[in-house]
C-alpha cells in the first residue's frame, strides 16, 4: 500500500520524535524517493527544528 503525501508528512513528523518501525521506515523511504514535494517538506521541518533549537540556545 503506497503512502499519500498527507500520510508521509505525518510519518516525517513522527520520525523526529520516535524511531519509525521497519515497515514505516521502508514505506516512507520509497515515498521520498519518488516525491520531491515531500523531500522539500522534510527539509523544511529539519530547518524549523534547527532554527528553534538555535533560538532556544540564544543564538541568532
Amino acid at each position: 500500500m503506497r503512502l499519500s503525501c498527507r500520510e508521509a508528512s505525518r510519518l516525517i513528523s513522527a520520525g523526529m520524535d520516535r524511531p519509525l518501525s521497519a515497515a514505516e521506515h521502508l514505506k516512507l523511504r520509497m515515498h521520498l524517493l519518488l516525491c520531491g514535494n515531500c523531500r522539500q517538506f522534510s527539509q523544511q521541518l529539519a530547518l524549523l527544528r534547527n532554527g528553534a533549537r538555535r533560538a532556544g540556545e540564544g543564538v541568532e
Partner: peptide, 20 residues
Amino acid sequence: DGHWREPVRAWSGPESQLVS
C-alpha cells in the same frame, strides 16, 4: 487523493538562515 495541492517550495539558502 492525499497529495500536496500546491508544489512545496524549497526554502533556499538565505531563508534557511532566517528560520533562527
